[in-house]
Amino acid sequence: MPEQTITLDVFRYRPDEDERSTIQSYDVPYYEHWVILDALNWIKDHVDGTLSFRWSCRMGVCGSCGMMINGDPKLTCAAFLKDYFPRAIRVEPLVNFPVERDLVIVMDDFMSKLTSVKPWLIRDDTRPMEEELLQSPSQLAAYKQFSMCINCLLCYAACPELDGDPDFLGPAAIALAHRYNLDSRDQGTAERQDILGAEEGVWGCALVGECTAVCPKNVDPAGAIQQAKVAVTKDWYKRLLLPWGKR
């Protein structure tokens, strides 16, 4: 154990025994190279095996370990103790989600929203497996940024709109829908339009912009939503002006 320690104030909720959440404080050894996830694992290993949280890759790509750190949504594998030391760190589950237990949130709602935007490549034709679909580097660049989403859900925790309208599709799901709409190989824009153009779709967004600010992978969901608003609007006018399906 090093001489210095740091305090983690951790959100606890055990549905088997608790009616409401509590905060439990743990003193944890302080190492400069430790991330908050290391500290949580140290607690689980050495002090309190009942503390539950999700994690896996510990390199910022699996998207499991998002939590509220002093009120800000962060990946705990990429948030270093040294950026908070010597003050205590408050660790809570992501907001805007029900809490299953401790730091584990219920993700069902996000999974159904993600599915609803049809995040897969839609083509009218079937193509032989010998043939690549050509795509130039600039066509790739047009959507690449929006394909980088790791589904860590930090953007959902940062979005105040979801508090007012829990049915709002939310940043990550819209960004992924937009990613496929922008893909030169995709022909499914029309199929995604109804869900994107609905009130719970892009219009649920008032452009707070925090989703983009907290995104650990620079996906820019706020940008995706605004671009989708423009696309949906253009499409609406086209439908209005060309009522014979010539879209």
Partner: peptide, 11 residues
């Protein structure tokens, strides 16, 4: 037993 806790969003 499941009993998910709904946290209020900070007002």
């Amino acid at each position: 037993m499941r009993k998910p806790l709904v946290q209020p969003y900070p007002k």
